[in-house]
Amino acid sequence: MSLKGKRILIAKPGLDGHDVGAKVIALALRDAGADVIYTGLRKSSAYIAKVAVDEDVDVVGLSMLSGSHMALVSDTIRCLEEYDASDIKIFVGGTIPEKDRAALIEAGVCGVFTADMPLEDVIRAIERELS
């Protein structure tokens, strides 16, 4: 399996200013064959949805350390709907408490990745979702 030909947006919504984790994931995805775009820090949900649509990505990975992940995820999903782009898959990574994971999946997220997860597992999960 490979992510060859898949387009992936790594996005940083919310206010935290750390993107080391986001950049590590971006490079791992590239090495798995994907075309990867990174938004930069502190982007609004509306902005992330617009970039995802203009770039026609298969996946948006939301990297969040700020704690407001529930609101940011549902905003992003709503903004994608406005573009008729609900088929773009959303993954979430960062510091997400155990108790919120089920609710994120319920809201429409395809997978939640934590910092302690091996990169190969992250990539395999995305490959599986896209195949």
Binding site: S2, K4, G5, A32, D35, V36, T39, G40, Y47, E55
Partner: peptide, 22 residues
């Protein structure tokens, strides 16, 4: 550029265009 080894790429032009992207 696409990496000839992995077939993947980092598409980095856009991030320099942040100021106008809205």
């Amino acid at each position: 550029p696409t990496s000839p080894l992995t077939g993947g790429s980092i598409l980095g032009d856009r991030i320099r265009m942040d100021a106008i992207a809205n």
